[in-house]
Design a protein around this nucleic acid. Structure first.
Lengths: 209, 209, 209, 209
DNA sequence: CATGAATGAGGCTTCATTCAT
DNA sequence: GATGAATGAAGCCTCATTCAT
């Protein structure tokens, strides 16, 4: 009825329509008819390209992972400068690109939920695990770089910081999704200042229980 | 039929049975009949205590929020010592209590997903927002305390660090849920070392794009 | 809406309603809704008793086989007299009982068709094979009895005659179903006269290609 | 794509492909796409030659009736000799020609079933009635010939015997289709011996209920 | 109070048929 | 003529909810 996106083929037309509807209504709240209507095609046509609702959902997931990874890579490869600067730049790039599609964030929650239940559990869980691993690796490589260059303290456990950082980004967006008054970009930058400071400064030991 | 966990009343019997089943099968994968079977009661009985599946789900959510908050309070109130030490102790307490019920973590994902799908969106979204706000407040109060006591640097933005920290905890558990080889406790402690170091040390300024 | 048949239980209520509708509209022409309406119950109720349309169809088949066998047994056990007389009496009894339910004959055709195609092929095919074997056996036992008693010629191959006879009965009813002007009872009696005569009389050999 | 059976035209190409698929999967189990694939043509092409699935099915039926009749005529016209011999020869010829295409037998069952289900009922029912009548007539003519020539007893009711005989042939093939261990040719010959004996021998009267 | 048999609205999916190329 | 991508009517089945016992 009103296509305009440069959808090369019908497959991606459907995926994008589905993404929109899944994001708005959730997996089980979404009717195949809604997707068809959103895509401006007949209900049956979807089944020419995808085997089932579940199959389509997974295709949306893969599409989503792919564009997310692509964004991340761009954000990372972009910059020169000190490792600290690059880390902060990565923070900005990621959050900005995500904020641009915050309305899609509910998709992520649908994916999480799918990975927790249902038939597709395994496929999703695996994909998430791999996705997080990849992402952690990218960030930890950056941090390790900082350690090797002497910019960061040698005691720093790059893996752990990367894992927590990746998680923090994720969760800041989550909070932004829940709370319109929450500004994740500013928040993250303040946080990054502290964290980077922690990476750079000679540690003051703390003990615990 | 064989549940005797200290359920004072049938209401909590049903809630706990429902929590179990929702965690395993997801919201829409769960049948009322499954819950009744799990609780060892008749299907119709559920409707004596809850108005609908959705209502029961929300009750599970509230129950979950409550016990989670209770755990958190225990973790926080527990310790004395320096703020750094208390922060690290909080980290340990929270992660430990969550790890004990990691199999319930999928419930959180269901709740997230529910907050994204239109039917119950408002109720869940609101509850999550409040939950996160409360939690951020608790943590930011602690950090602010550190600033006021001179233990942490004055430039530190307590709110932001709290938000990111709360998020990082959440997301580390998420990663643990996806990845059995991932150890969130150790990871979090390494991360906390760096973060606390960043809070304590005099900042080395970093600029960015 | 208007039950009156002495249906002890709902299972047979549904089976009988289904038999009626399957007989009138054929398997794939039958809607589950039709059956429910015919039985005066809700659509969903059928699924409390049968797993699927196919399962219900098979249940109808089994019910049909059972009552058919029961009829046959009555027909057979009934009479004394010479074997010839008993054979003729069997002929009459079978055809009469079938003619009483000729409107159900189309069910048989549905069953044949089901045995030829579809998922259920094996189950139906097997049941038909067994059904025919049983029936042949009953008839051949009778004929063999005639041979042993010296009433029939010793050269008679009881098995073969039984098989053909069983088939002839079947097929006469089939023709009656197609052709309202066809009188299978008279026809069969005339035929039986010839056949029994052939069993009794000393054979006049015939050769062929 | 790879069919070159002497199909003069595409019409018969399609009919034969359809016959194959209908025989294997049954009417409603058959997809138009299957037929097109079997015929090595496009789905749409079928509609250039036939108005609908049902129309094609009926065309297959007519084609089937035609070749069956042709076979029967050949079998009948073939032989000289006594009527008994011709009858036996007919038996052999018919069964042999049918056994050669036993895998097509399931088509007959589909046709029967079609004649029972409401949509096409009339057309099929009529065709079957005519088919049986024709066939009975051919056989009864033969038997009457035997009576007239004094070879068979005058009391014989040619029509009835013909009807039963035609039915027996049909049903023996049916049993063969259900039961691979069943040998219809031998069976039929043993049966024919008895029957022909009954036609020839002076009758021994039998009375019944 | 407790139950579970009964219900029927609702949704996914199939597939004969159409029609633009 | 030939094609096969697109269609949407139609049907099986699910399952939250009700209510008579």
């Amino acid at each position: 009825m009103e296509y305009k996106t440069g959808n090369q083929n019908k497959t991606s037309l459907i995926i994008e329509a589905a993404a929109k509807v899944f994001a708005n209504r959730g997996y089980s709240g979404t009717l195949m008819a809604d997707i068809a209507a959103e895509a401006g095609i007949g209900k049956g046509t979807i089944y020419e390209y995808f085997p089932s609702k579940e199959g389509l959902f997974f295709a949306v997931f893969e599409w989503f992972v792919q564009i997310t990874k692509a964004e991340a890579k761009i954000g990372i490869s972009a910059l020169g400068g000190s490792v600290s600067e690059r880390l902060m730049a990565l923070n900005d790039a990621l959050l900005r690109s995500w904020l641009d599609m915050l309305d899609m964030y509910s998709l992520v929650m649908e994916f999480w939920s799918a990975s927790a239940s249902s038939q597709m559990r395994q496929r999703f869980k695996l994909a998430f695990r791999e996705g997080y691993r990849d992402f952690r690796q990218i960030v930890s490589a950056l941090i390790r770089d900082g350690v090797e260059k002497g910019e960061f303290q040698p005691e720093v456990d790059a893996e752990s910081v990367a894992a927590a950082l990746v998680g923090a980004w994720d969760a800041l967006l989550l909070q932004a999704w829940f709370d319109e008054d929450f500004d994740p970009l500013t928040t993250s930058r303040e946080f990054m200042n502290v964290l980077i400071n922690g990476l750079i400064s000679k540690p003051q030991v703390v003990s615990s229980a």
